[in-house]
Design a protein around this nucleic acid. Structure first.
Length: 420
DNA sequence: AAAGGATTGGCGCAAAGCTC
DNA sequence: GAGCTTTGCGCCAATCCTTT
């Protein structure tokens, strides 16, 4: 057993002061130097066995009582206070605590009093918080949060829209021909909607003129974006009743949330049309989730592919449960969904240790990382930078990192696992 | 495993510095 | 100037590391 060093400076000083001796006189009686005695009194040195024996012999100090017992109430109160996470997680050793309890008891009492006051205040705050939630004051979610929660609770999978999109994709033979051309044809033939270039100064991605039956698209958008916008418009035209019904069932608190959700659902339909469920699922498995290859095969963007992977939650035909997030340059998560156990914080930014941030420093590269959450679950995470911006040099370019990941047990299904 | 050298840490001291 | 504190050093034992 390791012997704990005895720091009993306060006891020694009390004993000296009781005998009305100076350090020099007391040191002489103990047979040690004044400097050594001073170091002992200031807990810069532990007392040696020889000094302890001298104390017992010359001043009748009870050795057994020195060193304190573990049952000391002050010590246990101190331990409890410092075990609280608010103390910063660096719990001092028992030795240190004994030192404080024995040699600075008033400091220990003050610290305990502070901790007790903190606990009382925390409890009061919690009770205020509870009251606020019950009275609904200040706790209403924003429309965006409401819609985010809606998608979260349906597992980011909307069966009616997904199957309708898949059915249409099959009817149009999307997987066997150029998606852009197929969608243009479909809009023209079925909806008498003509595709036109938006004015170069307009800066819009999509604008639909319902009365003239013209869909204006940004001429400088990449093909994947143009296809997505056409698919979005098809969703708006063909799935109105279904989307209305879904919004009705969701019972949003505000009309604003309902409108945000409508856009979300039309986006969902667009993704599902361009990346039809079963063929996309098969391809994802076959290409081992290689985002670039999937994007090329389906004429979609990396972000569209990554997002779609997070929606493959059809009952009985589920894909690998993944999480997906889009992060802006400042670290804010601007899109998130997790079909895996990993849950994003409801508020705040992404973890700085996450590789998603490195993606900005290495454009064009796929950054792979093995990450572990505090609960011990390990994840494979991949991230890459994507830039958005229509137009040339003068147009603003927004840069995002998109991140995709899965639990390590599924890593074998990902081509990126070899990089680790 | 044993021997031997190197390093580390604890003990104690003298002397210088500081405070009242 | 008395009392207290800090600094720096030497000595020694314990521990670690390398070599045989």
């Amino acid at each position: 057993m390791a012997h704990a060093k005895l720091f009993i400076g306060r006891r020694v000083r009390e004993q000296r002061e009781a005998s009305k001796a100076t350090q020099a006189a007391f040191a002489e009686r103990l047979g040690i130097s004044t400097s050594y005695l001073n170091q002992i009194e200031n807990n810069q040195r532990p007392v040696s066995a020889a000094v302890l024996l001298a104390l017992a012999e010359k001043f009748q100090v009870d050795i057994a009582s020195i060193g304190g017992s573990d049952g000391d109430r002050l010590l246990s109160a101190l331990r409890e206070a410092l075990a609280d996470p608010v103390s910063g997680g660096s719990s001092p050793s028992l030795q240190e605590l004994k030192l404080v309890a024995q040699n600075a008891p008033s400091f220990a009492h003050a610290l305990i009093a502070c901790h007790q006051a903190y606990r009382r205040n925390s409890e009061q705050l919690a009770s205020f918080d509870d009251q606020l939630i019950r009275t609904n004051a200040l706790s209403e979610p924003t429309p965006y949060e409401e819609v985010r929660d809606f998608f979260h609770f349906v597992d980011n999978y909307i069966d009616e829209l997904d199957r309708a999109a898949e059915h249409l994709a099959q009817a149009l033979g999307l997987t066997d021909r150029d998606v852009g051309t197929a969608l243009v044809d479909h809009l023209e033939q079925h909806h008498h909607v003509r595709i036109a270039r938006a004015g170069t100064g307009e800066g819009v991605i999509r604008r639909f003129d319902a009365s003239a039956r013209v869909l204006y698209l940004n001429a400088y958008s990449p093909a994947s974006t143009r296809s997505f916008q056409m698919a979005f418009q098809i969703g708006a035209l063909e799935q109105r009743a279904e989307i209305d019904a879904i919004i009705e069932r969701a019972r949003f608190r505000t009309a604003e949330a309902a409108e945000i959700c409508r856009i979300g659902l039309q986006n969902y339909f667009a993704g599902a049309l361009m990346l039809p469920y079963r063929s996309f699922l098969v391809a994802a498995k076959e290409l081992r989730h290689d985002l670039h290859l999937l994007a090329v095969r389906f004429g979609a963007s990396l972000e569209q592919v990554a997002h779609r992977l997070s929606t493959l939650q059809r009952s009985g035909l589920k894909g690998v449960p993944v999480f997906f997030a889009r992060i802006d340059r400042a670290g804010n998560i601007t899109k998130r969904h997790s079909a895996s156990k990993l849950q994003f914080a409801r508020y705040g930014a992404a973890c700085p240790l996450w590789n998603a941030h490195q993606a900005f420093e290495a454009p064009g590269r796929m950054i792979c990382q093995l990450a572990e959450t505090p609960d011990g679950v390990r994840y494979l995470s991949i991230a890459t930078e994507v830039a958005k911006g229509e137009g040339g040099f003068a147009s603003p370019h927004r840069r995002y990192a998109i991140a995709l990941g899965c639990e390590i047990s599924y890593a074998g299904d990902f081509v990126y696992a070899a990089r680790l």
